[in-house]
């Protein structure tokens, strides 16, 4: 009898834990806004890259552009731009928008080559 109660108790804990995990993983994240920029969907990232490229075309501040890009792809600003460029292409961005992104990629590439030993 005592053994049966123990098993039931453990089962109840497991059931409760399952419910708690489900709530924490499925329901709770949807209720709060806790995602980081790097979790954005590819099309939002492409638009983000475009905005960064537009600002870069205006202020020419590559360091700031890199900081902004690393928010969506930490430690790989060029990767972020390349990914953005591909997505932009798939989504049919205008030529001038593609060009802005490409200009940013070129600038990042040049800087990387210059800083290489």
């Amino acid at each position: 009898m005592r053994k049966g109660r123990l098993i039931a108790f453990i089962l109840a804990i497991m059931l409760g834990a399952t419910a708690g995990l489900m709530y924490g993983w499925l329901y709770y994240p949807a209720k709060i806004s806790a995602a980081a920029m790097k979790s954005l969907r590819a099309d939002y990232k492409a638009d983000y890259v475009l905005m960064v490229a537009e600002l870069f075309a205006t202020d020419g501040d590559l360091e700031k552009a890199t900081d902004r890009l690393e928010k969506i792809k930490p430690a790989d600003a060029i990767g972020a731009v390349r990914r953005g460029l591909l997505t932009a292409q798939e989504m049919g961005y205008a030529d001038w928008e593609m060009r802005l992104i490409a200009d940013l990629e070129i600038a990042l590439q040049q800087t990387r080559q210059e800083t290489r030993p």
Partner: peptide
Amino acid sequence: GLVIGAVLGLLTSIFIVPARYVDVAPSAL
């Protein structure tokens, strides 16, 4: 038992193994 389990599960899902956000919209930031 249910309450203990639920609390443990919730804490685990929030602090120990939090949900991973993938392909979210800016509203979820």
